[in-house]
Design a protein around this nucleic acid. Sequence first.
DNA 1: ACCTGAACACCGTTCAAGT
DNA 2: ACCTGAACACCGTTCAAGT
Lengths: 206, 206
Amino acid sequence: MTRSARTHSLTREEIVEAALRLLRRDGLSKLTMRAVASEMGVTPMAVYHYIDSKEDLLRLAYAEISAPWGQAPLLLAGQDWEDSLRSFLMSIWEGLAQYPGLGAYLIELPNINVTPQGLALGIRFFEDAGFPPVQARLAWSFALTYIHGRISVDAHLGHKPEAPRLEGLRAHDYVTFGVEGVILGLRAIQEGADVVLTTRTRRSRG
Amino acid sequence: MTRSARTHSLTREEIVEAALRLLRRDGLSKLTMRAVASEMGVTPMAVYHYIDSKEDLLRLAYAEISAPWGQAPLLLAGQDWEDSLRSFLMSIWEGLAQYPGLGAYLIELPNINVTPQGLALGIRFFEDAGFPPVQARLAWSFALTYIHGRISVDAHLGHKPEAPRLEGLRAHDYVTFGVEGVILGLRAIQEGADVVLTTRTRRSRG
DNA sequence: ACCTGAACACCGTTCAAGT
DNA sequence: ACCTGAACACCGTTCAAGT
């Protein structure tokens, strides 16, 4: 894929695409700025004319990857919230599974998946599903935290999520069970199960 | 803490203690082999006479940290499984919160928290709680995955889990809500909620 | 056996210079 | 504006040498 002769100048989009290609092929641990540059047939430092840093590049890469589920409305017509949440979480998992190590890196970054739009969308989704505002916020965080945790755990399994593991269980079974657990837990909370927080959130002491 | 004059030779234990001290103080991102050596008043390469690699050191550090919850039986007398699981997960969260970045690193390592003993203990715990074997395995993974995900997400919040965030919610509220969600989800599954896996696990086709 | 000093093979990134 | 070449300030780790 290395271009021996470039016919035009670089673009941000080309750089992000090159990074995504390398990420799919070799995973984050092999992705260096030097590798991205060499994939484009250019000197390492050329890349810095278009991006600020490696973190910047990986944020752009994630923006590209997450476009399918970042834009679409969460609550589809004719679906209940449980089905919507299930397919949403599974599509994140399937999407990030193609980019080994990326999810585990992103989970540590501040403000990933809590962009203003993303956050508002998620809270709105759970409010529409009948959760009060604070619980909607917590429910959204709970669901995202689980799926990103699962993706991080899967990171060390390499590129083949189909490889069988203990008792014949595969990665897909673990994530299916976990997503179902999250949904059932949230259903119980929505139906009135008590969750006692230490912080008083809605009460103004009078 | 740097010793200007050493009176005896290094030990593995001293090295691990130095690493834990630095981890508590500055987090994993500042922990280099050179920093550990300098904390002990010794040349960087001296450490390699006692440990194989940085990964080795961090595994030893985690073994030390996890001793309190790694040894103790999960199911305490007179407690039901939900209370036991809650205090188990919270103690992992509280324990790792003191070592910023460590949990997020460990989540990617193979075979962390799935040592043969740890795995057997966890599966046994859920079997005693009434889960069939395969579900016990999945339940154990689900609970650990969530709490490690939560710890990873918390990593970027810095050393102060008490700092207030959106809507006055604090880190403790997020983990409390999530742990309760996990427990309620598992309760629903234990009480018979269906989780359809793609893999046939117990059936030998006849 | 225990530790040092120098070096290797990398990183991300800065800076001055070329066109 | 776009890119190069050299260098800086780090890493983890290897290796030969000292005591």
